[in-house]
Amino acid sequence: MTYVTMYALTGTVLIGVGLFGTTTCSHLLRKIIGLNVMGAGTFLVLIALARRTTDPLPDPVPHAMVLTGIVVAVSASALALALLRRYYRETGRTDLKPTLQKPRIARKDSHES
């Protein structure tokens, strides 16, 4: 197994772990970390793909993509963490309660604006 394959496989495993974490954990911080793990996995796959040719020099385009991707991921995590802090301050909870609309019974009295 070459180290390029190792990178690609590790990336794939990380994506799986991240996706699993994001979908199954209820703690919001874990979900955000899951997304970051997933992102790291995607970037690893991209880095491995830069080495797909026999050319001694790696392809610079995936590297440029990874750099852009990291910037996007950092800003998204920052926004998610800021939202989470605010959410925690307002509710004292660290998980999302279901916000689906309740059926039309017992809603008559709520006249909030």
Binding site: L28, A80, Y87, E90, T91, L96, T99
Partner: peptide, 8 residues
């Protein structure tokens, strides 16, 4: 906030 986090 809940909706925003879920959407994000």
């Amino acid at each position: 906030l809940t909706a925003a986090l879920r959407y994000l």
